[in-house]
Design a protein around this nucleic acid. Structure first.
Length: 764
DNA sequence: TTAGGTTTAG
């Protein structure tokens, strides 16, 4: 009997094969060699229906996977079985069975280039003297016809991303780390670029083309999970690249742990087994720990100038502006906190429901899309739900405007995934957005808008400040003044006055260790320290250490100032500027500003005889973006600067100021708002201090000094809480949360009040 | 064919 069923055995080393047979590894298999006493063993991973060849002989093809060598391109091989043996095999052989064949013929595989399997295939038949052994892995209840039907649904093998080889066609799973939503390419197709990662921690960027938008993967978010079938792998610029080829198909899944596992696809038929369901769940768990997603979605109410953001919104109007730009009017139910621009278009050119456009005129925003995005934008349907990726919120001011406004651009090109994605109605984010849009009171928001911010919450009604303790009842100020401290209260009061009136003076630096407060040094202090430190030239012996690369040059000024920049390497390599930490010696204030715009972090240093060290702590020890970070002179105990290596050795150092401060022995000073509010409620008056890093104004204290927009926003908030020029009776009511506390010294005892757990809300 | 991630400069 040429096809034998071996008994089911757990330990495969015990397979009772004839003694003369020796196992041959696929990698040693070559055409023209003697394989007489050899056998090939593998798992059946794919089988095709039994067919008849042109001459009437039966033909059965299976694919064997060598489990000992999963990563090799030649780890799977086609086995072509002819004649009676084909019939016998088709009856009994199933996926997952262990298949052993001896007495085979090795022939060059004509399909190896295409299917990525072994360069040879095995030809097996009774005539050739072949013997097949197999281990049945599952209890067998199927009949021959059922076995055939199983064979029609092939079982796929998925290649981990670290095992991809040039010139193969593979199936794979991946977590989306980056993507460009489909856009119109310069050729005939739509294009989408997708970068995947998987638990092998290898990245693969795939370039996908299709003339049909629907055939490209329906990726909506970083962190989505995809399954690609029949993707071509090629080498490009020294890296593996995926590209669409014949038969490419994809499934996309929400990457959220616990979300329903529902594939998004345009394929009419696809396989999806319990095993694959499990794979998705596992990848979700892995991704949750290992792939950074884009963070919480930005709503229009939280846009900031100079921000690139993704917006999930509904299209309410559109208009052609000129050949290279197109207007989209969208809303998300929230209100942009800044005056936003309106792109002038003729009413007749504006497509959309007139009544709704008018109702939404203060809630919708204009997004001008350019160049390659125009064609897709033109085709969008009014009312559809969109996710627009990498919108630029740009601060701008016109000559005739007192305050600057914010503009929304979707610039040309597709860098950073810039583009427009159309979300289906069944998308979870869309469902949530729809429910929210339906809850928006259009009449109410219209009325609100017709008032100025000063009128908001004026005599007609209460202006409310949100507290975290809505369950508490209000306490009269008189009662509070007559009570002992410490206690906590919710109060309803009016803000009679506040100090400082010049709001920028309210920002201080606070040391949480010694509890000291100090003024924020101004730029001149820093400049002076820099000039002073530039007198000492960089020490040439400290250039290029094991953990940083250095460049040094001489400025073309009278002092022949020497400048050195030390680029800290991460994991032995230099990173992109926006992830890189620099140390600079001899730089001017202006040079620092320029470098902070381009690099993640900048640390001013000076040379000593044997090491680099930080400057005097009157200077910032770290600059990041617009923010200068200072250390407490009293509490810091500077440690060697080479401690930065500990962070640099991390795989993806985030260069958090707190972490940098810690390794450098710096006690980080935090920016805080310190204000004194005089609150009255008709029964009494108290002075309550505001001590706030970010929560109260929803503005980080660290950014207020360098951002005029945030300063304006803060001024507007204070004008709302305490409108200038109003009589006491006309001031708005506020609700907030305060606590009383005792301050005692040798001579006196006083009770103080502090506002906390309170956030200003524009409207409630 | 197209694009091949790493923000426009309106």
């Amino acid at each position: 009997m040429p096809v034998q069923l071996l008994k089911i055995i757990k330990d495969q080393s015990e397979i009772p094969l004839p003694r003369h047979l020796q196992k041959e590894h696929l990698k040693h298999l070559q055409e023209g060699y003697d394989h007489t006493n050899k056998y090939i063993q593998g798992i059946v991973v794919l089988s095709y229906p039994l067919t008849k060849l042109g001459d009437g002989t039966d033909f059965f093809k299976i694919v064997l996977q060598d489990l000992d060598d999963l990563c090799s391109r030649i780890s799977s091989i086609n086995v072509l079985i002819h004649g009676k043996m084909a019939q016998d095999c088709a009856k009994v052989i199933r996926h997952g069975d262990t298949f052993i064949v001896a007495g085979f013929k090795v022939v060059e595989s004509p399909t190896a280039r295409e299917d990525g399997r072994h360069g040879c295939h095995l030809e097996v038949s009774e005539e050739a003297g072949s013997t097949i052994y197999y281990i049945d892995t599952k209890p067998r209840t199927t009949t021959a016809s059922e076995a055939t039907s199983i064979a029609v649904a092939p079982q796929y093998v998925y290649t981990p991303l670290n095992c991809l080889k040039d010139g193969t066609i593979v199936n794979l799973y991946g977590v989306v780390k980056f993507f460009k939503p489909p856009y119109v390419s310069k050729g005939t197709d739509y294009c989408s670029v997708v970068t995947l990662v998987d638990p092998s921690n290898v990245k693969l960027t795939c370039t996908l083309f299709n003339g049909n938008l629907d055939s490209l993967p329906k990726i909506y978010k970083i962190g989505d999970i995809v399954r690609f079938h029949r993707i071509k792998i090629r080498q490009y610029n020294g890296q593996m690249q995926g590209i669409t080829g014949a038969g490419f198909a994809s499934l996309t899944f929400d990457g959220t742990v616990g979300a329903p596992v529902v594939p998004r696809t345009s394929s009419r038929a696809y396989t999806f087994t319990d095993e694959e369901h499990k794979t998705i769940e596992e990848l979700r768990v892995w991704a949750a720990r290992n792939v950074s997603t884009s963070g919480p979605a930005v709503k229009l109410s939280s846009v900031q100038p100079m921000l690139f953001f993704d917006l999930t919104c509904q299209l309410v109007g559109k208009a052609k502006v000129d050949g290279s730009s197109f207007l989209l009017k969208v809303w998300d139910g929230t209100k942009c906190p800044y005056p936003s621009w309106k792109v002038p278009v003729e009413a007749k050119d504006l497509e959309g429901e007139k009544v709704l456009l008018r109702q939404l005129r203060h809630l919708s925003v204009d997004i001008l899309v350019y160049d390659n995005h125009v064609q897709l934008a033109t085709s969008l349907k009014i009312g559809s739900f969109l996710r627009i990726y990498s919108i630029h919120a740009k601060q701008a001011s016109a000559d005739n405007e007192a305050v600057s406004h914010i503009e929304f651009h979707l610039h040309g090109g597709t860098c950073y995934g810039r583009g427009i994605g159309i979300l289906p109605e069944n998308n979870l984010d869309v469902k949530e957005l729809k429910a929210f849009l339906e809850s928006v009171d259009l009449a109410g928001s219209q009325n609100m808008e017709s008032m100025t911010s000063v009128e908001l919450g004026g005599t007609s009604g209460d202006f409310t400040v949100l507290t975290d303790h809505q369950d508490l009842n209000n306490t009269e100020l008189r009662t509070i003044m007559n009570s002992t401290a410490p206690q906590q209260y919710r109060i309803r009061a009016k803000l009679r006055t506040y100090k400082p009136q010049k709001l920028h003076q309210s920002v201080k630096l606070h040391c949480s260790k010694c509890n000291s407060l100090q003024e924020v040094p101004d730029g001149d202090d820093f400049d002076f320290i820099l000039q002073d430190s530039a007198i000492t030239a960089p020490n040439p012996e400290l250039q290029n250490a094991s953990w940083y690369d250095s460049v040094m040059w001489t400025a073309q000024d009278q002092k022949q100032r020497k400048i050195a920049i030390h680029f800290v390497r991460n994991d032995e390599l230099l990173q992109q500027p926006e992830h890189t930490l620099l140390m600079i010696e001899g730089g001017t204030l202006k040079e620092f500003w320029k470098l902070t715009k381009r690099f993640k972090c900048v640390i001013p240093v000076k040379s000593t005889e044997d090491d680099l060290e930080l400057l005097d702590l009157s200077a910032p020890f770290l600059l990041q973006g617009n923010v200068k970070y200072y250390g407490c002179k009293q509490c810091s105990a500077p440690r060697p600067i080479k401690n930065l290596r500990f962070i640099a050795a991390e795989e993806h150092p985030s260069w958090e100021p707190t972490e940098i401060a810690q390794v450098l022995g710096i006690e980080l000073l935090q920016y805080v708002f310190i204000m004194k509010f005089t609150l009255v409620d008709g029964t009494g008056a108290i002075n309550a201090y505001l001590f706030d890093y970010e929560k109260f104004f929803q503005i980080p204290a660290s950014e207020i000094l360098t951002n005029s927009f945030l300063q304006e926003k803060m001024q507007m908030t204070m004008n709302t809480l305490c409108p200038p020029g109003r009589k006491l009776g006309d001031l708005p009511w506020l609700e907030c949360f305060i606590k009383s506390y005792n301050v005692r010294d040798a001579t006196k005892h006083q009770v103080y009040y502090q506002i906390f757990d309170t956030t200003v809300a524009e409207d409630v």
